[in-house]
Amino acid sequence: MKAWLKFSPDITNKSIISDTIKSYDIDFNILRANITPKGGKLLVEISGNQVDESIGYMESQGISVDPIKKVVRKEEEKCVDCGACVSLCPVKAISVSDDWTILVDDQLCIGCAFCTSSCPMKAIKITE
């Protein structure tokens, strides 16, 4: 699952994330990070057998966890299945199917928006 983790300034110097990873044996991939004196925001992808437990732990330590439902969407009406976006995606979230339809995988998308600005038809939208 993908989620935004928000830290308040008073907990930024605690090692909550590494404790979580060790305790719950989860894969923890940081997709984006933004840390300021007013606190921090991390976009992360978490997977493993104890995802729910790990989220419960992080929340108990003061991190607010906001799961992301859908990140990227292709507007079928606008898309002409050209494929200009495919080679621009850094995480291979966009692929070409056997019948040359362009498929966008919102599970893999990290929301970099390279495809949205480069799409000739402006057919890809990122919503959170």
Partner: peptide, 23 residues
Amino acid sequence: TGKIEINGVEVNASPLSSYKKAE
């Protein structure tokens, strides 16, 4: 195939025209 090699490195290739529409 979506990939070609340039100077020994695999590079992603993507079409700008739509093969689906062409079909």
